[in-house]
């Protein structure tokens, strides 16, 4: 007997962008609805889960937070694989982080190697809008960049003020779901859903799907 209702859809969301643009703050704001001033730099990558209902479907978004510093990118790229959508974040008060959008997008396409890369769902996120002193990256310029780079969608946020954070992630998840519509696999087992992406080790594909063997501590 097939139970159709309440099946969860699993979606992998990857957030990339320069160091210090506020990736961790955005994710934290979205997943725990709080803003913390004191995020430590992200070393390597980490992730959070958030369960949301979108268009009547329960979606488990596994949001990967990657390190912005170049040295850790060799690690970060192993998380790009299998992503359903990708948010590229820049700091509106830091123009160089805006100029690096190109690099981030290309790195993602190169290492994530998604199918149909021309239509892969990206969302460009201009964060730290609260720091408006007149010198922020202008919406017009950001929109222009998005138009020139495959008509990407753009949104301005502030993790600090909680401006449009929820909206940004909802958009991202919706985009991911649209893309996945055709071949969305609704996996029943939580383990197999999640483990397919938790793969940092370069050569442990076979280990990753292994369930921890429950044993008692001696």
């Amino acid at each position: 007997m097939e139970k159709k209702k309440n099946k969860k859809v699993f979606l992998k969301v990857v957030i990339i962008g320069d160091s210090g643009v506020g990736k961790t703050s955005l994710i934290h704001r979205y997943t725990s609805t709080r803003f913390l001033q004191d995020f430590k730099p992200t070393i390597g990558a980490e992730f959070s889960n958030k369960e949301v209902v979108i268009n009547g479907k329960t979606v488990v978004a596994q949001i990967w937070d990657t390190a912005g510093q170049e040295r850790y990118q060799s690690l970060g790229i192993s998380f790009y694989r299998g992503a359903d959508c990708c948010g590229i974040v820049f700091d509106r008060s830091d123009h160089s982080s805006f100029e690096n959008l190109d690099t981030w997008k290309n790195a993602f396409l190169k290492h994530g190697a998604p199918k149909e890369e021309g239509t892969f769902p990206f969302l460009v996120i201009g964060n730290k809008s609260d720091l408006d002193d007149g010198s922020l990256v202008k919406e017009r310029d950001a929109q222009q960049w998005c138009a020139d780079n495959g008509n990407l969608e753009y949104i301005e946020t502030s993790a600090k003020d909680n401006t449009s954070v929820e909206e940004a992630f909802t958009k991202l998840i919706e985009k991911g779901m649209e893309r996945e519509k055709v071949n969305l696999v609704e996996l029943p087992d939580r383990m197999s859903q999640k483990n397919k992406t938790v793969n940092l080790q370069r050569d442990v594909a076979k280990d990753v799907n292994r369930k921890p063997q429950k044993k008692k501590c001696c």
């Binding site: 938790v198 080790q201 442990v204 921890p212 044993k215 501590c217």
Partner: peptide, 12 residues
């Protein structure tokens, strides 16, 4: 060994 068997993603 028992804890190790649990930790598949040791590098991370």
């Amino acid at each position: 060994p028992e804890i190790h068997a649990f930790l598949v993603t040791f590098e991370m």
